[in-house]
């Protein structure tokens, strides 16, 4: 199980994956919006999306777990 965490504080701009999707290492799974900029966040390992902890529009802090991949 690997976790995708927020690299900085911001809002969830777009969820690019759904539970059950297969993702590759390095694939963008979420786009965060911070300081008027879109910041893509990539999966650090390949696997299947198990949980998504956030919704579009949610505010997150740096280090918050966004997605879990197994």
């Amino acid at each position: 199980m690997t976790q995708v965490t927020a690299t900085m504080a911001g809002s969830i701009w777009k969820l690019l994956v759904a539970v059950g999707d297969h993702v590759e290492e390095g694939q963008d799974v979420i786009i965060l919006e911070s300081m008027k900029m879109e910041i893509p966040i990539a999966a650090e390992a390949s696997g299947v999306v198990k949980h998504i902890h956030v919704q579009e529009g949610d505010f997150v802090n740096e280090g918050d777990v966004l997605v879990e991949i197994e």
Binding site: M8, G10, M35
Partner: peptide, 12 residues
């Protein structure tokens, strides 16, 4: 700017 000078990503 409060941002990384290399990636231009913000740094709150």
């Amino acid at each position: 700017y409060a941002e990384d000078p290399n990636t231009f990503y913000p740094s709150p």
